[in-house]
Design a binder for these strands. Structure first.
Lengths: 218, 218
DNA sequence: TTGATATCCCGTCTTCAGGGGGATATGGAT
DNA sequence: ATCCATATCCCCCTGAAGACGGGATATCAA
């Protein structure tokens, strides 16, 4: 369909949007809202990534609204494939639940931002506009998650020095390098590590880092 | 002054704000805007952290607007001390320049969010309200920085497998653990590491991680 | 004066890291 | 057809790191 007009964007220079969302009510609802906003146009809708897969390159949208929990391959997992098919498109994740792990995975996979499904039309088009201009939208809930991911746990069992040593370990430094950089003896570093392992109830660098990162000690 | 009324917040239940900002024009400008908004009150202003230090506990504000570039001790560095004096207060950083390193350091030190100095009064009070409700405000520019910090560099010299190995290294895993977890031979892991080091022009785990994190390969 | 912290010291034994030299197979690009 | 990147596997070597055990000393706060 309209194969010869691929290189041209739609004539009125609207921002083109593709939606991939399995809930038909939400999908058509948001599409309706977007289509009734000047300068925005939903060029296609799909209920799964499989449906969208072979049409995305032709659709060539500016923005893709992607549900996080699609049937079959999930939205989060589909991001890399979508990026390959439409590298220039901005991907905005759509979700009702804001789950930390999933959100970070989506952002890490290349999503540009995050929208919740209960946002108003104005908020959604604002978000699209913002990401098009390179601002990168983020809902308050998402921003909070991101911020909290930067906050260290204040109830650490580790002493200041021990935390310092653990941070050096996380940078891949050897014990002797840590000793040199902290101006202490290698033996002291070893003792600190012993105590860190004891306090975190682990017996390896790997597990210490896993526990520390999980509980945001570092 | 009014020492006996410390335990009570101001009678009208306004959200109380303290500003620490050395530019008197900006400081009084924003304070004026806030004070002319119902429900918000700037209870004190300081031009440096030194000035604020001994009064903060008595001011006991809900929110502290803190300039990032103060004379003497910088706003970013003052965050831990402020947290100790007024643990319950939300700290919002104020800045004109949005520098990635500084922002992350501020967030990491315990700031709840970030505002730019050219925001309107409505935006500032909205942000304060949002952080009070636990949403955590973030300006578009900041959100973009945060998002981009999650985006991997797509122009990596490393192959997919090499990137995978480097990620395992960053988790503190030993070569043999990596081999087991990736279902490949230890020798294969060693070869990948050799190639990673060659491509990144380094010769240690520490330097490889440093380069990779700097250029966002992992 | 007990406990936590931070520093330093001794041993043993095993594993790991980094560097060197290879090989083989696949698949894509030229 | 040939090169190149990728991914896999194999051998060698040395020195360092890691995990385990046992200590000591000094400070400082509760």
């Amino acid at each position: 369909m309209k194969k010869n007009s691929i290189p041209e964007k739609n004539a009125d220079m609207s921002i083109t949007v593709v939606m991939i969302e399995d809930d038909i009510t939400i999908r058509e609802g948001i599409a309706y809202l977007i289509n009734n906003t000047d300068g925005y146009k939903v060029v296609n809708q799909y209920g799964s990534y499989a449906d969208a897969e072979n049409n995305l390159a032709r659709d060539n949208p500016d923005v893709i609204l992607l549900d996080i929990e699609l049937p079959g391959i999930s939205g989060v997992d589909a991001i890399p494939a979508i990026k390959r098919k439409v590298p220039a498109a901005y991907i905005l994740m759509l979700t009702v639940y804001e789950n930390e792990q999933t959100i970070f995975k989506a952002l890490n996979n290349g999503a540009s931002g995050y929208l919740t499904k209960n946002m108003t039309a104005a908020k959604i088009t604002d978000a699209i506009k913002e990401v098009m201009e390179g601002g990168g939208p983020m809902s308050a809930g998402i921003a909070k998650l991101v911020i909290s991911s930067f906050q260290k746990n204040t109830e650490t069992p580790l002493s200041k020095r021990e935390t310092e040593v653990l941070e050096q370990i996380s940078e891949g430094k050897s014990r002797s390098k840590i000793a040199r950089d902290l101006f202490i003896d290698l033996e002291t570093v070893k003792t600190h590590i012993k105590n860190i392992y004891y306090k975190l109830d682990v017996n390896s660098k790997e597990d210490a880092l896993k526990v520390a990162r999980k509980t945001r000690l570092i």
